[in-house]
Amino acid sequence: MPIVRDELDPKISMWYFLAHSLRFWREKEGLSLTQCGQVIGVARSTVSNMEAGRRRPQDDHMRLLDQRYQTGVIFQMLLWFARMAHDPDWGRQIAKYEEQSHLIKLYHGQVIPIALQTDDYTWACVRAGTPKDFEASMARRVARKQYFLGRMEDFEVWALLDESVLARVVGGPQVMRAQLEHLLKLSELPQFSLRVVPFSAGAHLGVDGSLQLLSLDSRDVAYSGAQNGGRLIETPGEVRELSVKFDRIGSKAASEDASRELIKQYLERYT
């Protein structure tokens, strides 16, 4: 008997609504997965993964479906809105991309990135937030952090931090001391580059919010942070724009050696 997949809830995100629509229209037109794949030039399994939300479709796929279904630009616009909208499920998707990446670039200007935090620092951040379940939120962050650190031999990390991250006391002096010692240890790893944008650099593009760039084998993706969430970005043009922004922020940063010295200066303040 054929395997019947549960339909995705289209109310969860625009990506789920798009995946739901792909399956609805294919079945409405009486096409099999294989036949649909022939329309857009991909394998049966690829269509299945798109409809299950495991793989993101591309512009040419949506254009060909609009032609086949005579839907104008509906599928092309659904893809556009999915890319532009905040995705509540972004954390799960970006974690998948992190598994495939060989280079991760991070910029944070408010707090230490989760992947680089000590557990005490993470707990202080969790308690400062408003989750319904502090323990569950903490468990999710620690699990992601442990996985990230466990794979650090498999990829490079380029991290840019604003000096305000060092100056902001999260969890008290003792927590900050341990956190800065942790950063210094990470900065000694050959695959890890840590640079700080000092206050003396003045205004820079990083004041708009955090960002993350992931280099995969075939393409790059990005994440732009914002209040109440952020946006996972897969459009090549937007990803390039964020890559340029990261480089421009980096042009304001101190060297790796000077950044370590700056971290040590703050470490003395917390001792």
Results as ranks from 00 to 15, higher is better:
36 C>T: 15
43 A>D: 08
51 E>P: 02
81 F>E: 15
67 Q>M: 12
246 F>S: 00
258 A>Q: 15
256 E>M: 11
102 H>N: 13
124 A>M: 09
247 D>P: 00
8 L>G: 02
134 F>T: 08
52 A>I: 03
92 R>M: 13
100 Q>W: 01
207 V>Q: 13
144 R>S: 14
108 H>W: 05
246 F>L: 04
48 S>Q: 10
145 K>L: 12
73 V>M: 09
259 S>C: 12
45 S>G: 08
259 S>E: 03
138 M>P: 07
89 D>H: 13
125 C>P: 05
225 G>Q: 10
240 R>Y: 10
234 E>S: 15
3 I>T: 14
15 W>H: 14
194 L>W: 03
31 L>Q: 11
146 Q>I: 12
212 Q>W: 01
254 A>D: 14
244 V>M: 13
51 E>L: 03
264 K>T: 11
195 R>F: 02
102 H>G: 07
24 F>C: 06
57 P>H: 08
75 F>A: 02
22 L>S: 09
179 Q>H: 07
210 S>C: 11
137 S>I: 04
35 Q>G: 00
70 Q>A: 14
181 E>F: 02
67 Q>Y: 06
101 S>A: 15
153 E>F: 02
56 R>T: 02
269 R>H: 10
171 G>I: 05
125 C>H: 02
133 D>L: 09
116 L>Q: 08
213 L>W: 08
212 Q>N: 05
81 F>D: 09
95 A>N: 04
198 P>Y: 03
226 A>I: 03
96 K>L: 09
233 I>Q: 10
93 Q>C: 00
85 A>I: 02
114 I>F: 05
170 V>W: 06
157 V>P: 00
130 T>E: 04
174 Q>H: 12
264 K>A: 10
218 S>K: 15
241 E>D: 14
128 A>V: 01
92 R>F: 08
233 I>F: 13
219 R>F: 13
194 L>N: 00
107 Y>G: 00
244 V>W: 12
20 H>G: 04
222 A>I: 06
228 N>L: 05
188 E>G: 03
211 L>K: 10
90 W>C: 11
193 S>D: 02
197 V>L: 01
74 I>L: 13
5 R>Y: 13
129 G>W: 06
22 L>R: 11
32 S>L: 13
90 W>P: 01
39 V>M: 12
256 E>N: 08
176 M>Y: 12
149 L>W: 05
143 A>G: 07
56 R>L: 04
28 K>M: 10
239 V>M: 11
114 I>Y: 03
222 A>V: 01
89 D>L: 13
10 P>R: 08
235 T>C: 04
176 M>H: 13
193 S>G: 04
47 V>P: 06
140 R>C: 11
1 M>Y: 04
182 H>N: 12
257 D>R: 15
25 W>R: 10
260 R>L: 02
179 Q>S: 14
48 S>G: 15
29 E>F: 15
135 E>D: 12
18 L>M: 15
126 V>R: 03
94 I>C: 03
79 L>F: 01
103 L>C: 09
96 K>N: 11
21 S>G: 05
143 A>R: 15
54 R>Y: 03
74 I>D: 03
19 A>I: 07
